[in-house]
Design a protein around this nucleic acid. Structure first.
Lengths: 242, 242
DNA sequence: GCACTACTGCGAACAGTGAGCGCAGTAGCG
DNA sequence: CGCTACTGCGCTCACTGTTCGCAGTAGTGC
């Protein structure tokens, strides 16, 4: 199969000779995404994808060197799914805020992203576009290039990390196969014990008195709050304009 | 097996009757961590752990309901590994900074953490201790409890997200099984093409002119920089003290 | 027009996975 | 002293990612 030194992003879609392939990588990627969305990432197997497409499993390896490549393609496909990137408006805070919210929304739509993305550099064309776009929003501020990439990385880190935390419980419940209520019932005795033991007074206060964790839009509001403080931090350190 | 409603954190280590178990959950967890550290998370199988401990595979299921439980235990074990948490000093910035750096160091020591942690709420005793500790550092500031937990969540999100980004390439190289040089050689043609195409001028500037990405301690310095800005954001929004 | 070549689809197989069954053996309670 | 509830574990099941080899086909050079 193909050159081991060939990276998935650099593979020609069609060979020079021989019969035309009956499928495209995009088709395969879309099928895989549909499966992961509907049945969870652990249900995603090459056989399952092949069945979805009505083809033999081995055929997929004419398009992809490995399942790893498929995961790379899935990640990059999903980054671009909600239309083109909005043009920079000149309001850097607003632009970065928009990007952060879009990014969070994407992860929410595809919760499997978080687990897949760890250990996988985002070098796909759509990911590169997104990074370029974020840099462009910062361009007029006069930061030097090292700071600019740090801002983008930090924002990206916050969004990814926050979404992972948000989805952790939801995913655990889904994987367990029982309903949210049964999952909670299973965990309640342990958490009760922790709170009653009294060695976590502040955590107990969070559980008892905090509003955000119990509100339906608590995670959303926490995200907004954290994001604004992050932006505040950079705003307080803008370079002195000449 | 056992009660499906019993959560791993709440399972008694030893049964009331019958022969004493010949191993402990801690032993099994330690063996699993050693394997994941040395051979990567994808080499971690129940058979591999059993071999390491010199037992039968099925025996492990007397201690753990599933491999999922083992992963939970591994994550929580690793959180506590570098000694007890330092006592709050009264300097909230310093305390949070220390926690963030410790957390980052832990992920670097165990790169598999990042991929495992997604989709897994951190409810283990050591994770709860760490959260309580972070809340304690913030306690004197006079934030209300909702803001306090948001600060902790945001910090946690940043650290996790940043470390994931840092480790992405390193892990991809490791998984590919070739050296860093060969990996780079394989990707160079694609990245060259992207830069030459000219549609990512800022990204090109990062690759050409930025210092941080090429410096040995670049990731470390980027982390510090991002962390300070994050702390700045909260410092700029301290509640007015009565 | 025709061989040659480089491709495509894919059935079958391989080594390895998480997990469950059922059995032999054992510790402690009554 | 038995009865019971446990422990360790060989064997097995259904499934995984991936490869081999083979039949069939599209385009190139003559």
């Amino acid at each position: 199969m193909d050159d081991a030194h060939t990276v998935v992003w650099n593979r020609p879609e069609r060979a020079a000779k021989g019969p035309a392939p009956s499928r495209t990588r995009a088709e395969i990627t879309a099928a895989a995404i549909a499966i992961a969305d509907a049945e969870g990432i652990e249900a995603l197997s090459m056989r399952r994808v092949a069945k979805e497409l009505g083809t033999g499993t081995a055929s997929l390896y004419r398009y992809l060197a490995s399942k790893d490549d498929l995961l790379d393609l899935m990640l990059d496909a999903v980054v671009a799914e909600d239309g083109g990137l909005p043009a920079p408006t000149g309001d850097w805070r607003g632009d970065l805020r928009t990007l952060a919210h879009r990014s969070r929304a994407t992860i929410h739509r595809h919760p499997w992203m978080a687990s897949i993305a760890a250990g996988r550099p985002s070098l796909g064309p759509n990911s590169l576009d997104a990074t370029e776009h974020a840099l462009a929003a910062l361009d007029p501020l006069g930061f030097d290039i090292d700071v600019m990439i740090t801002v983008v990385d930090t924002l990206h880190a916050f969004v990814r990390g926050y979404a992972i935390g948000e989805l952790a419980q939801q995913e655990a419940v889904r994987r367990s196969g029982v309903g949210i209520q049964q999952w909670m019932d299973a965990h309640a005795p342990y958490l009760d014990k922790v709170v009653k033991a009294g060695r976590h007074p502040l955590l107990a206060r969070v559980i008892r008195d905090a509003e955000l964790p119990h509100a339906a839009d608590g995670a959303e509001r926490g995200f907004q709050l954290g994001l604004e403080r992050l932006l505040d931090g950079w705003e307080a350190n803008l370079p002195i304009r000449p």
